[in-house]
């Protein structure tokens, strides 16, 4: 399988204010994450707030440089690109954010916002081109003269998608694209993303806290906790037969879950001082003394399915 996007042992740290003279604390938002996205593939990213989902999404696009490791797009290391090369690369990699109210300039007409992106990448940006971009997301050419505030939340998210896809990217990071919307509006946006994916052969990193939505959208799923991958594998397997206790706990916590009850105690620790060994052990109902010793490596449990847990004796 040739990959479109490839992350190799990627870490992203953020420096924190110095508290003592000789130590500089860091927040380890993402720790040694590796994964690939094939052309046209949708990879789902799940985990609680503070697990590093959004940071990882930005690193995968080169919006945030990796502190360690490399991000490759079609084999090219984003970290080695000069700024002009990076700008050219952006045409192939776009992003849709959670809040369509914040991601659109209120003073700019919708058509203007889309024409700007097209022009920036040296693409034709006449009314016909902008109209086509809007038509792709179910809006009308007449809408291009209107400003974002004249649209509902769902329509604004369509505009944000139209703008991201206007330049025909091959990779899209969608960070909680439907979380701010009503259920009936969510369904429309998800359906649209699924159709566009088929139409444009778009690969996606789909970030969401809503497990039902990820199950429906993703081919493969990465489960993050405190910046580390706990489990990665085909969506079907992850949701039907999770192999990591954290995945099992997340699934059991989802509203309406039919899985055996498994309420996690406490909250996710601070990424500024993660536990030693397995980062999940402080909340894991199955933790052993050995779990504190070293970080469990990801190991294969089935073809294309890995977990970072030393226990194989659990019935989850």
């Amino acid at each position: 399988m040739t990959s479109l996007v490839s992350l190799r042992d990627v870490s992203r740290h953020f420096p924190l204010p110095r508290r003592r003279l000789f130590t500089r604390p860091v927040l380890r938002a993402v720790q040694q994450v590796s994964f690939d996205v094939a052309p046209g593939e949708v990879v789902g990213l799940v985990g609680e707030s503070g697990s590093g989902k959004s940071t990882l999404g930005r690193v995968a696009l080169g919006l945030l440089p990796a502190t360690e490791g490399a991000v490759l797009f079609e084999g090219q290391d984003l970290g080695a690109l000069r700024p002009a090369q990076m700008r050219a690369m952006r045409r192939h990699m776009q992003m849709v954010f959670q809040d369509p109210f914040a991601s659109l300039n209120p003073r700019r007409s919708v058509g203007g916002a889309i024409a700007e992106v097209l022009a920036l990448h040296g693409l034709p940006h006449g009314e016909a081109d902008v109209g086509a971009a809007l038509a792709r997301v179910g809006l009308e050419a007449a809408d291009m003269k209107r400003r974002p505030r004249q649209f509902s939340g769902g329509q604004r998210q369509r505009i944000a998608i139209a703008r991201a896809l206007a330049v025909r990217p091959r990779f899209l990071v969608a960070d909680e694209p439907v979380s701010a919307l009503d259920v009936s509006v969510q369904a429309g946006i998800l359906k649209l993303l699924q159709e566009l994916r088929g139409e444009l052969g778009l690969a996606m990193l789909f970030i969401s806290h809503d497990l039902t939505v990820v199950e429906a959208m993703a081919d493969r799923v990465l489960v993050l906790y405190l910046g580390r991958v706990m489990e990665a594998g085909p969506a079907r397997e992850i949701f039907r037969a999770p192999r990591h206790p954290y995945t099992a706990a997340l699934l059991a916590s989802a509203p309406g879950s039919k899985r055996p009850e498994m309420v996690l105690q406490g909250e996710i620790p601070s990424p500024a001082s993660p536990p030693s060994g397995c980062v999940f052990r402080t909340r894991c109902p199955f933790a052993l003394p050995d779990c504190a010793r070293e970080v469990p490596p990801l190991r294969s449990v089935a073809p294309g399915h890995e977990k970072a847990c030393i226990r194989d004796d659990l019935a989850l």
Binding site: S152, V183, S184, V185, Q186, A187, G188, L190, K191, Q194, T212, V213, E215, A216, M217
Partner: peptide, 24 residues
Amino acid sequence: RALLECRPHHDADGVVRFAPIPGA
């Protein structure tokens, strides 16, 4: 019924479906 069907669900052929409610 429509609200329930807005959530991703599998139809009879096992295909994932999203059924938005038309209009607002």
